[in-house]
């Protein structure tokens, strides 16, 4: 259950006894209820896109940060995600939370942060590896070269055994 809109608090089933109150779960009056058949990762990804679209672009952290979160979420959705993306989201969340100019940026990562903490399996079952995975598909990038040379033998394919490409320091 998402309380108080996209930037509010996301509650999991075991928290249903918590109170709607300023001191516990504050709300402006909005509620969203997601049934058990809903994929909470897709819910959070949708919220991430919403915030990137809503960002006015005035301050650096929110303007760039919300778009970086979208990239991380999209990469995970494509099945190319890894623990690296999860760590990135947490890092961007910490920055936006304190450095953004207004409440939109400060709260923009809340739905992703909450669902990551409470519905972690929805994320982890999508991760390809628990380490780093490049967003760039090396073999895919060779497709146009294969087409031009008319080759499709094993030597014209990149065998992605080594994971050392595109590693970010």
């Amino acid at each position: 259950m998402q309380v108080s809109g996209a930037s509010g608090v996301c509650l999991a089933m075991h928290e249903f006894s918590r109170r709607i109150a300023f001191e516990d779960v504050p709300t402006a009056g909005a509620f969203m209820v997601f049934g058990a058949h809903r994929d909470m990762f897709e819910v959070a990804r949708n919220f991430a896109h919403f915030f990137a679209h809503e960002s006015c672009g005035f301050c650096t952290p929110c303007r760039v940060g919300t778009s970086l979160v979208v990239r991380c979420m999209d990469k995970i959705a494509k099945g190319l995600g890894s623990q690296h993306e999860i760590r990135e989201i947490f890092r961007i969340h910490r920055l936006l939370n304190v450095a953004s100019h207004c409440g939109l940026g400060q709260a923009a990562c809340n739905p992703v942060f909450d669902t990551l903490n409470k519905f972690r399996p929805a994320y982890e079952r999508r991760l390809r590896s628990l380490d780093f995975e490049p967003a760039f598909d090396l073999d895919g990038a060779l497709a146009s070269a294969r087409q031009m040379t008319g080759r499709d033998d094993p030597g014209a394919h990149f065998v992605g055994e080594s994971q050392g490409f595109g590693v970010h320091p």
């Binding site: 960002s55 006015c56 672009g57 005035f58 760039v64 919300t66 778009s67």
Partner: peptide, 9 residues
């Protein structure tokens, strides 16, 4: 002037 919003600013 600045135009546009979000990352498109």
């Amino acid at each position: 002037a600045l135009s546009g919003r979000g990352i498109g600013k």
